[in-house]
Every structure is written in C-alpha cells, then in structure tokens.
Write a protein that binds this DNA or RNA. Structure first.
Lengths: 240, 240
DNA sequence: TATACTTTGTGTCATAATAACACTATTAGG
DNA sequence: CCTAATAGTGTTATTATGACACAAAGTATA
C-alpha cells in the first residue's frame, strides 16, 4: 500500500462503493437453477438481478454476503465461497461500485423463499433459461459463476452441497450430468465413488418405480470445504 | 443490490477504501521468489509488504494493479490474474480497507527493479524465507498466493510465464519441482510435454556442463492465459 | 401369479495413462 | 581416452479409464 503518511487522512481520497453479490445455485426437479430478484427501483428497475447489496463498515465480506442473502431471500446456513471481484468503472450508473461476488449452493428442499421490500419478486431460473437484460453486469457474473461451478465439480465435492443429507447414487450422478451437460457411465461413476471412500451406506432404501436405490450419506467431515474428489485421481491415496 | 431509491445519494453511506495488492513471483537461480517492498511510514513502518495501493475512481482493478506494480517496482507487461479479495474489518488500522489481491508472474531476467519514493527498499525473497512480521495481513495473502500458484501449476501452463522465451526441458522441469516441492521423473515429464504439443524446437542448443540441452519455445498463442495442460490428461485430445 | 417394464447395481475387458527405472547420448575436463 | 555430468530415450508393470453386457429388485398390469 502506497499511502503511508503519518498524518493519514481517511477522507482524503474519493472512495468507491463496495457491494457483495451472491449467485445462488439450487436444484429443482433435477435441474440446476439460479435465484434472482426483480429490482423495484432505479437503476435497472424491473430488471432481474443477482441478490446483493452494500457492505457495512463493520462486517466482513462473507458476513455481508450472508446477510444480504438472508435479507433478500430468507436463505441461510448455506455453503458459500468467494467467486471474483468485479470493478470496471461504469458498471453501475450511480457511482463507482466494486462488487465482490460470491456463489452459494443450497439444498432447495430445505429453504423457503421470501420476498424483501427491495424487490418485486424472487424467482428460480434454470441456468439455461435466464431472463433477458439482467441488471448491471450480472450476466457476466452469472456466466462466471456457472463456469466456476462446472470446473470445480471436477475436483471437489461441491455437488454434494446441492443434495439432501441422504441421497442415492443415481441422484448424485444426475447432478453431475446436469451441471456438466454430458452423460456419465453408471458403472464407472459408481466405482469411482465406492473407491473414494467418501460415502457411507445408511442401510435405507428409497423406493421409486424400479429397483429401490440405496441411500448414502457423506462420511464425517469431508463434506465441508472442498475435499478433493477427482474424476482422475492424483497419486495413490493412503489408507486411514 | 439493495440500494434502489430514485433519489440515490452517493454520499449517503460511509465507504471503505479499496486497494489492490500484487504478489509478484519470479525465479532467481532456480528458486521461487516473491517481490516485497519495505514500508517507509505508518502503519507498519519498516515492515515488509506486498506492493499495492489505492484504486483510483476511473481505473479498473487490473489497471490499478498494473499501475501500482510499475510505480513501486518498475515491473510491467507481465502475466497477472486476480487472486482473492480480503476485507476483514480491522485488517488496516487506518480505516476499513478492502484489498483486491492479484498475483503476477515475471521473467526475472527481463525486469529491472527500481525503488519508489514510498518505500525504503524493494527486494526478492525466497518463498520459504519470508521476512517476519509482514505488514497487515500480507502473510495470509502470500500463503494464499503460493497455494494458488502451486495448484494451478497442475492444470495450466502458468509455469511457462516464469521462464524466458527460449528454455530447455530440464529448466522447465526444475521449475515444476521447485514450486511443487517434489522430484519429478525426467522421462515421464518429457514424454508428457512432447505429447502435449505445446512446445516447438528452436534447433538451438544450450551449453552447460554436460550434454547440451535442446532449446524450446512455446507454440503460438497457447502461452497466454491458462491453456489446459494437466499431469493427468482429461479425455483424449483432438488433433489440429 | 406370471410377465413385462423400469430402474439400480455389478462384472469384465481392451485401451490408455502413470510410475519406476534402466539405459543410451553428448558434451567438458583431465 | 577415461570419467563425470547432464540430457534424453525405451521398456515394462500397474493402475485408471471408457465402453458395454449383464444381473438384481422392485412396480405395474394382465
């Protein structure tokens, strides 16, 4: 940091505003959706936008992201990570706004939406049927988030955050297929997971139309963060 | 964004300051180094810090990072990417400061250092011999950057940014070993590179002590950005 | 109660990628 | 011309992958 004067004056420089925006992913009937809010006021009134808002002076960026998320949608206690910071001059007509973007993954079933005063509506959109003319540079942010989710799927357990506590292998496989946009081989996928030692059999079965699916849960603490789970393993793993 | 009033007042909210900090990596005698500046003034006078400074109202974040980099070290035209944004309240004693961190990779040979007015000194430090008591949360930022560099090495051509235009395979291999902190098998490493089709033989040889090494350069435009180059390939590649 | 249908789950095998390591090649220096 | 040093290649066992056939366990229906 260049600013080093002993008589530092905090008001000397004009300062940008800082916001957080949160891209919220969830599954609905097996399809990947994003949560959006419809703006009430200028600028971009009536346009759809990613939920977000200004950062308070005494809260961390992640706290701000969680607060905004809850205020605007009622969603809380979710997996969240920082995505990227967007700061082009002119991206907001009001003033210079720098936006720290986060993305969140939620178990759709467990969350009830609510609309805040600040927006007309809150809605889930399938990622391949986004509304036109998003507010600000939110389309760019959204694409960025989708790309990131897709690529992190290949070496993390992120996808597990989208599922309920107990789930079947076919369900998990369908998530991967949905997000990656390609079919996976059942046998190879199951084998990979069995070898990974990430899952624990609950003993329960889930009835559907055909043969019931076995229900699994994640083993211990590997759920949190991004424990490495690759399609192609690196090195051999050491047994615990 | 929550702020939506038509009579929007840009001065209504108290605003944090926004800085950019740049972690600069370079090789010196085959070891990975980081460029640091020694602060002249309060806060953290005489402590070592990552170069950086405040973002101007009319420049993009990356422009700010490049400007600060050049001002403080004379370094320009380098590979740079955004790392992470650090914004804990209290990380700077002057005021609330949110820092967008970047990391840069430079070809050490091609750059001459210069010291700016704002610092006592500019120096390269080996990444495993960092000075104590870095300014602000710069130690955290630095570790973050090193981790990122290490992990991106495994699926990008980032390492190539550290080398001169023409280089030998042994040199490239030594970079990987230095950054990853483990020995690699020569035969396997060379084979991987030959198969990747990333390199072009210059025909030239580089004399050293033993058998001269063949010099290569990067093929066309794959140098820029992070063209995928994995240890373990994904899928089969299609021939061009 | 049998038969079709649907979905879950397993077995197998050819091919490709990886890791390990032995070997050859080309220079410099005595 | 022998040795040390470094560059570079070949070979092979093991493991991971991709493709695909097959078996298992339910529901729906005649």
């Amino acid at each position: 940091m260049t600013e080093t004067a002993e008589n530092y004056d905090a008001t000397k420089y004009e300062r940008p505003s800082v916001t957080v925006d949160v891209v919220i992913f969830g599954l609905r009937s097996g399809r990947l959706h994003v949560l959006m809010v419809q703006r009430k006021h200028w600028p971009y009134a009536d346009h759809w936008a990613i939920p977000g808002g200004f950062v308070n002076m005494d809260e961390s960026l992640e706290m701000a992201a969680r607060r905004e998320l809850e205020e605007e949608t009622g969603v809380h206690d979710v997996y969240m990570e920082q995505l990227y910071t967007f700061g082009e001059p002119g991206r907001d007509p009001r003033t210079r706004v720098i936006s720290v973007a986060y993305f969140a993954l939620i178990r759709t079933e467990e969350q009830a939406l609510q609309v805040s005063d600040e927006s007309n509506a809150v809605r889930w959109f399938p990622v391949d049927e986004l509304p036109k003319d998003l507010a600000f540079d939110h389309e760019k942010i959204l694409r960025f988030a989708i790309d990131r989710l897709r690529s992190k799927l290949e070496y993390t357990t992120l996808a597990f955050q989208l599922l309920p506590k107990e789930f079947s292998l076919p369900k998990l496989k369908r998530i991967y297929e949905e997000i990656l946009g390609e079919k996976l081989d059942k046998a190879n996928f199951y084998r990979k997971l069995r070898d990974s030692d990430l899952l624990e059999d609950t003993g329960k079965l889930l009835n559907s139309r055909g043969r019931p699916a076995r229900l699994y849960r994640f083993r211990d603490s590997r759920i949190e963060g991004d424990f490495v789970f690759r399609y192609r393993e690196a090195k051999k793993k050491d047994e615990g």
